[in-house]
Design a protein around this nucleic acid. Structure first.
Lengths: 243, 243
DNA sequence: GTCTATAACGAGATAGAC
DNA sequence: GTCTATCTCGTTATAGAC
């Protein structure tokens, strides 16, 4: 009993001690990323500097390396955070209309992507804009980057399996046959390959629309951005066979 | 006669004198821009530095101000050059198939855009990628930026006026009506407003496709990029009513 | 008039000694 | 972890060569 008590006490002591350390570490990590995001907005990803982040936080630059082994690792963390933030926004928007018909869910996800982009322009630029010179994204960014795409695939799959099914799409041209099959096998083996190919096209085009608006290409061209976007993504949905 | 001769001589003297100066000026200007493009590729637009350009050219930084009043003006010149280079590539590709049917010309222009982007990735990033922090593009960039769009409009106009005309497009939704009319009045008053709206959508989506390929979003997703792109832009053409 | 070179400014990054 | 000496940057003023 005495042994049990003392062991308990030690466990509690350890866990609270480690918990406090871990909590502090999480807080500092978050503060670093917040400050880095602020610099991202002010100067762009290319000029993100560990030193400047440290200075702004009242730390010394060498202390940062206990949290991020290099500038690229900090960048990677920001990229993954951005993809996850976007993915979560899209998933929440989807879940809010989970019972609706596929075209409505498609629209909801696309609008969530646009809203997130408008609300986080610099993080959007980080993940969907120009590559950062000298930086190569590690494989760890792939799963977070796939979230929106997977969401769209799920919607089309539900439409395919649901009442009415998908609009029949013409087969892809001869020279794209093998590639379409390969893409389908990778992403959605249960869907016709022309649908998967159309999905990838729509996925790219969705971000084309968002990017054009965000990066100023629509200035003096499109004024009523929101209805324009809705119209465009509805067409995108029809392109993959949503009715 | 004497007066004529002497005036001729003066003109020649002036023009050769000015011509030599002007030639030198053009050459130096070109060298500056070439070196700036090299730095663009190496470090990105955010880190483009007048001093580094001057150093590499064996000039002193203040001398550059005879050619470009500021760093932003140099950036603007690079942006305009990039738009013009892209526009010219697209126009040449179009002229090469000027006698073909509109869908073929549409494809030719889109493929030229993609080819140019793949051949000039850093210049593409400059004009269609993330905005350069702190830089605001002046109005002078607008006309060069419009060249590809105007080309696409012209193709659709020819299809509209030509044999067979355009596929009938459904009218835009109620909430986009006024905006579509406004866009049509701006860009192509002779085309139905739903066609003009679809054109703007297709224009954005074309660059969405190109950007996704160029910026690495298609890595491990799409392998056979060229047939995939052809398929996608043919769908884009159908979206604006090309048959 | 046209150009280049020198020098300087204020701000910021950086490397290394301590 | 701190401090300092030395870099970079964009930009301007000025003086002199062609």
């Amino acid at each position: 009993m005495c042994a049990l008590l003392s062991s308990c006490a030690r466990l509690i002591r350890m866990s609270t001690a480690q918990g406090a350390r871990a909590r502090a570490r999480i807080e500092v990590t978050a503060a670093i990323k917040d400050e880095a995001r602020r610099q991202l907005a002010a100067e762009g990803a290319a000029k993100l500097s560990l030193r400047a982040v440290a200075r702004e936080l009242g730390m010394v630059s060498s202390a940062l390396y206990r949290y991020f082994p290099s500038r690229d690792d900090l960048l990677t963390a920001l990229i993954i955070d951005a993809y996850d933030s976007l993915g979560e926004s899209a998933e929440q928007a989807h879940d809010a209309v989970a019972e609706a018909a596929p075209p409505e869910r498609w629209l909801a996800v696309c609008e969530a992507v646009r809203r997130w982009a408008l609300g986080h322009p610099h993080e959007y630029a980080l993940i969907y804009g120009s590559p950062v010179p000298g930086y190569v994204a590690p494989q760890t960014t792939v799963p977070p980057a796939a979230r929106v795409g997977l969401l769209l695939i799920g919607i089309v799959r539900d439409a395919h399996d649901g009442p009415g099914g998908l609009e029949e799409l013409p087969p892809v041209p001869e020279d794209l046959h093998a590639e379409a099959e390969r893409i389908a096998a990778d992403l959605a083996p249960d869907l016709p390959s022309q649908v998967t190919a159309a999905l990838v096209v729509a996925w790219a085009q969705l971000f084309g629309l968002v990017g054009f608006e965000l990066f100023g290409q629509f200035n003096r061209v499109v004024e009523a951005r929101e209805p324009f976007f809705r119209h465009a993504v509805r067409q995108l949905g029809r392109g993959v066979g949503l009715r």
